[in-house]
């Protein structure tokens, strides 16, 4: 027992890459030339949110938890539905499709996740910013493949929401303590990523992004999810002016 844990501790400490620190981290950006006015009167398509909840094993490996994920997905949908009245735009829900059509939506959702993750890791996080992105305008895209989605739905903008949460497992927490005690290394337990982004479906360009890899709110509870959604939609340009005060 002892040996197993010691081995795990030593191995993992020697390999682990620390999560980016919270400081030096930007959390949101708007594309040049885009504003609430640009958005006014335009239809917004709400993509089915990507939700992933799991446990972080001792070594930091993510293990999905279907039940937590399902629960969080329900809370998220309920919360988005509840806040729908705060949007000044007409909001339409992703249609239920099969086959190639369904793939068009699911692949773009996955691409949004990759693009948002790139923005966070290579632009927002100052310590790891790509030289080609230094002092440059916010310019990211999903490509013109989104046009097909605009044609299919009549929406000009697409709103993507993604949450990924890893809760430290018992072993991970134990390991965290061990790591501090034995080698004095700080190891993070848990991971709480949230992205919300608005894409111009005619060009594929990301016009607004709010993204953070250290979000608050326990998505496994209703109140926690309300807090999370509040953080995700903070500064969203498409809210009715009154709605912000209500938050």
């Amino acid at each position: 027992m002892m040996n197993k844990w010691l081995a795990a501790a030593i191995l993992a400490v020697s390999f682990l890459v620390m999560a980016p620190m919270a400081h030096g981290q930007e959390k949101g950006a708007v594309r040049e030339g885009f504003s609430a006015e640009t958005l006014s009167g335009k239809k917004i398509l709400l993509f089915r949110p990507s939700v992933w909840v799991g446990e972080q094993s001792t070594g930091g490996l993510a293990e999905p938890n279907a039940d937590w994920t399902a629960q969080a997905r329900e809370f998220l949908n309920a919360e988005l539905a509840r806040r729908q009245i705060e949007f000044s735009n007409e909001l339409i829900i992703e249609p239920d499709l099969v086959g190639e059509d369904a793939k068009l939506f699911s692949e773009h959702r996955a691409l949004f996740n990759s693009v948002a993750s790139s923005v966070v890791n290579y632009q927002f996080f100052a310590g790891n910013r790509l030289p080609t992105r230094k002092n440059k305008a916010f310019d990211w895209t999903l490509g013109e493949g989104t046009k097909a989605i605009a044609e299919r739905t009549g929406a000009q903008y697409g709103l993507f929401v993604r949450t990924e949460d890893q809760y430290g497992s018992f072993g991970r927490k134990m390991f965290q303590v061990l790591a501090i005690g034995l080698v004095g290394a700080g190891v993070s337990s848990g991971k709480h990523v949230g992205y919300a982004g608005l894409v111009d479906l005619h060009t594929g360009n990301l016009v607004w992004l709010n993204a953070d890899e250290q979000m608050g709110g326990d998505v496994r509870t209703e109140e926690g999810m309300q807090k999370r959604v509040g953080q995700l939609l903070e500064d969203f340009p498409g809210f009715k002016p009154v709605a912000t005060a209500a938050k």
Partner: peptide, 22 residues
């Protein structure tokens, strides 16, 4: 086993080391 999982993770960790060069 737990150890196996821990080790696989280590191999997966993206190299987040900065040091990008133009």
């Amino acid at each position: 086993s737990v150890i196996f999982v821990a080790v696989v993770l280590a191999a997966w960790s993206p190299s987040a080391s900065a040091g990008w060069k133009l």
